[in-house]
Write a protein that binds this DNA or RNA. Sequence first.
DNA 1: GCCGTTTTCGGCCCGACTGTTTTCAGTCG
Length: 580
Amino acid sequence: MSNADVARVLVDLADLLEIQGANPFRVRAHRAGARTVETLAEPIALLVEDPERSPDELPGIGKDLAEKITSIVETGRLDQLDELREQVPAEVVAMLRIPGLGPKKVGVLFKDLGIESLDALEAAANEGVIAERKGFGAKTEQSILEGIPIARHGSTRTWLATARVAVDRIVEDLSELESVTQVSLAGSSRRLKETVGDLDVLATIAEGVESSEVMTALAEHELVEEVLAQGETKQRVRLLEREGGGLEMDLRVVPEESYGAAMQYFTGSKEHNIVVRRRAQERGLKVNEYGVFDENDKPVAGRTEEDVYDSVGLPWIPPELREDRGEFEMAESGKLPELVTLADIRGDLHMHTTATDGTASIEEMIAAAKARKRKYIAITDHSKRVTMAGGLDAKRLRAHWKQIDKIRGSVSGIEVLCGIECDILEDATLDLPDDVLAEADWVIAVLHYGLKQPREQIDARLMTAVQNPHVDVIGHPSGRLIGKRPGAEISYPGLFQAAADHGVMMEINAHPSRLDLDDVHAAAARDHGIPIVISTDAHSTGGMDVMQWGVCQARRAGLEKKHVANARPWSRFKKLLRNG
DNA sequence: GCCGTTTTCGGCCCGACTGTTTTCAGTCG
């Protein structure tokens, strides 16, 4: 059971308890516990297996949840969940995904109307049975019919990179309106989360302007499909259908004097804001999206985010860190990091050419890297195991390196490394012999196949790579594809300790579909003293532009320039090379 | 269900919008 699996069980349990009308705080406790497990840097299974430790040492997890987690890890299931599932069919839980339906209404549909499936729900709505029910009506019935497909297909989260292309354009266009004085991105896309569920944009308007003016402009924007809701201060729209499904966006129009409070409030995360508001309470203050208020409801802050944080005794906290994962402790002790930026990046150490599955030649990739101001790169085509991509065997690889060597002799202003992305095979051997790897300037070891192997075998494979004297870095360590497949199960603490001992680095693969290491594990690797390499894995010249998303992930991990190996100048970076 | 140098009981963040209502519950973020 991976951490995500365990968290899933707790979330499922919370959903079922909620439909059954359980104490909301009890439901919340289960969700909080799930989140703690999901964002834990080590496998929860390791913690459970350790006789010296127990899950109740984790924040928000007490005796009860610790027992549940232990049962889930040891048996793969939970009696209480199985019992509840007997009582509440899975499709009833799926009804929660219908916009406008929450646990209360679903509870009524299920318990009072006896609706147990989405088909039955659709039939009841078509017959007008639901609208007759107290608390429901014609509009609710209609929105149920419209929402059933969403419940059937599940909710989709959109890659940050995809979402930002759309929302950045909307923000730019709205900011050009004369009626508007400020427009900013808030929400999870401001926090640079790897995926976003929806978008939040804030605007302030000039004096004498009605909020409906900017809302009308948004409604008419070419990327907007329809307006879902609109009030005096808030408008919700759906953007045009694209790959990955429609994306919804909230626009909130706020007064100038509340701008900072609103930015703070709508940037989130929810967990972060709960702590901020609790700190306010402790100081006899109240924080909402309009400002910070004292006991007499007199405003004491709100124009800027800095003011809001200052009122609760904190310095401004970068949005990327606002997850209630230690940022408050760092802020209080004056240890907030100065986060790495895209401008800090000097090298790109993972890319492909036409030698395997890339679309550009060595020369083209070098030129593209120079155009992006890279001072050093590594050409790292696939090893032979990746047959689909035309992976290289020893002979072809040596010929490829010879060619790279020749080309790099004729270019200036950039260092080019002869590299390889070498597969770690299912049997825990490497795809190329040591004598070949010894000739490389740069070796990335990766898992591509057999990602579903048991954790012990995955660990053994990674350990082989880490202990090999020629391996420089572990590339996309988990092998996950966001929204498509979970990564391999890894004993991260053991992996990081071994990597630190052997001088092996860890990659944050910058491709929007990977971002692997994720934020939590990148931070854990940093804590082990491991230099992090942010790489694009470019398969084309344009593929080098994904570097920014890798930097986003690094920022969420709290990484500073000094933690990122390829933010070093070449003279210092080359000292990290194993074969150097 | 969790948590506590103010507490082991009694709290647990806050407000907008919608729909179905004549003052509010549910949902959402």
